[in-house]
Design a protein around this nucleic acid. Structure first.
Lengths: 212, 212
DNA sequence: AGCTCATGTTAAGGGAGTTTACATTAAAGC
DNA sequence: GCTTTAATGTAAACTCCCTTAACATGAGCT
């Protein structure tokens, strides 16, 4: 709540790091009112600068949003990577941890998540955004590849397909049930439990043994 | 494209069915620019009436959006019901058809879909909206119940959980890969193929036999 | 025909966002 | 110290949206 929106006097004429401050402000506003619920001027106000100031750092609102999304994808990738943990302690466990990390990110960073997946931005607005998104998905892809390698040859599903399936499951659950903030439907189980059971059934369908 | 935005002279003073025309206009605009990409005045313009006219039919923009969503849920329910076809020819096939119907709806009616799931409307803004959404989900729920009944007692998953899983899968795929319009990622398979394979694996994981 | 009321239109006030041009401050280098 | 330059601020023009009030129209009923 109390980040660097220091008063003008305290801070002087120059903001110091307006670019980053605008991204933070945008995150706050997205969290409160959704990716469409704020304007360029709002972001400037929140950062404590004039309405014209943001133009020095972003061409327009969309460019700001794109940067929020790009930054989000970077953190997302980091979070998924940590979940995967290079396949430790074993690929199956690690794979499930990736799923948990996905959901945890959506819950912990609803603003990033919304900017990334629900802002209506074209995924390849700029190369950086696209690359960041691809790298994040790459973690999923890598994990799937390690996992299918455990199956006997001949029964291995395409790893790409599998990673898309998992992405869809995680996104579906995060999107429908993952953010308690708004008037979401009430359920007899948490989003985490839902995803875990779903992944369990899915992996069983692929022939993975259940752990004891 | 050429629906009833007849000229003023051709149409006379009264529109005749402005309420419906506004909903259609909103659908067009949502399809083009997303649920947040139009204003109350825009809708009026598209319908060929003055900016003040909509107030005779909707309290505000949100009420208009809610009606688009409500209408969408009704058609959605109808489409899912048709897919389910009372479990014919057999529950397993019919269940897969529900999934296909889900995706077909998202593809054929992106505007309705966006209003229903991506507009940020509180699900229980009004009782009608909530009821329509619940009825649509009810189709999924009913289908899941019929399906689990085929499994031997003792291995039956909770039907509610299963319907939530399927909802999440279908929504995840529709949301990520289902609308070719914008700059979606290019894939080696269609959304339909993805969902079908995912459902197959999932159902196999639950113990359903594959068809010959 | 004449009434009436829902449905539209015009007009007007108030706000807000966008964007550009120009002024001001601060920091860094000569 | 002085100059240069990047980073903000201020102001203003422009456009658009929201909302309501007052007036106009015409479809249906009697």
């Amino acid at each position: 709540m109390s980040w660097k929106k220091r008063d003008r006097e305290e801070r002087g004429y120059h903001h110091g790091n307006l670019r980053e401050a605008l991204i933070q402000a945008a995150r706050e506003l997205i969290k409160e009112k959704g990716p469409a619920g704020f304007t360029f001027a709002d972001a400037a106000r929140s950062a404590g600068v004039s309405a014209a100031a943001p133009y020095r750092h972003f061409r327009d609102r969309e460019a700001l949003l794109a940067d929020v999304a790009r930054e989000g994808f970077q953190r997302f990738e980091a979070m998924l990577s940590t979940g995967w943990a290079n396949g430790k302690p074993d690929a199956l466990t690690a794979f499930n941890n990736v799923g948990k990390a996905y959901l945890a990110f959506a819950r912990a960073e609803p603003a990033y998540y919304a900017a990334m997946f629900e802002s209506g931005l074209p995924p390849d607005l700029n190369a950086d955004l696209r690359a960041a998104a691809d790298r994040a998905f790459g973690v999923l892809r890598t994990a799937a590849e390690s996992l299918v390698a455990l199956l006997p040859a001949g029964t291995r599903p395409p790893a790409l397909m599998m990673s898309l399936h998992v992405w869809a499951m995680a996104h579906g659950i995060a999107s429908l049930f993952g953010r308690g903030d708004a008037g979401r439907r009430s359920l007899p189980m948490t989003a985490e439990e839902l995803l875990e059971s779903q992944m369990l059934i899915y992996l069983q369908g692929l022939g993975f043994p259940q752990k004891a």
